[in-house]
């Protein structure tokens, strides 16, 4: 097993205008919370709130491209949103291995995304399988 308990991984992600626009173009979620600055402000936010599921895309990139092996598949991923994310936010992603199940080639991570003011914006768990 290439992974060990407590192995940690770090990655910086930016919610760029291109990612935001691409998400809307692909998934058509134009809810005013995400697209109308004034609407979002009347709801108590600083501006347009980025789609939380953009973070799932970052997780997909992390699992698919940032691990030391490519023979991986995501079994499950869970996410809790804690704070709003805004356009151009820099998000520090940190994941730690919390479980290794060699009998079924499975690894579990806990992760969080932290913004530039050190507030956790989302956290959760990911379970992956290592393909033979």
């Amino acid at each position: 097993m290439i992974f060990k308990l407590d192995d940690t991984f770090d990655k910086l992600f930016i919610v760029s205008p291109e990612i935001y626009a691409g998400f809307i173009k692909l998934f058509k979620d134009e809810n005013p919370l995400h697209t109308d600055e004034n609407f979002a402000k009347t709801k108590g936010f600083k501006g347009r709130v980025m789609h939380g599921n953009i973070l799932h895309g970052f997780i997909s990139y992390f699992i698919g491209e940032c691990l030391p092996v490519k023979n991986v598949i995501i079994h499950s991923q869970k996410i809790e949103f804690k704070n709003a994310v805004y356009i151009n936010d820099e998000l520090h992603f940190k994941a730690v291995i919390t479980g290794i199940y060699e009998s079924v080639n499975t690894v579990e991570f806990k992760y969080y995304f932290e913004n530039a003011t050190s507030s956790i914006v989302a956290k959760g768990q990911i379970q992956i399988g290592l393909l033979n």
Binding site: E102, V104, G129
Partner: peptide
């Protein structure tokens, strides 16, 4: 896929580890 989830859940619950040979 649920077989993997079952094995992981059982290993966690009983705080044990199986080998692939056992499974």
């Amino acid at each position: 896929l649920t077989h993997i989830q079952l094995v992981v859940a059982i290993e966690k619950h009983f705080k044990i580890r199986f080998t692939s040979k056992e499974i």
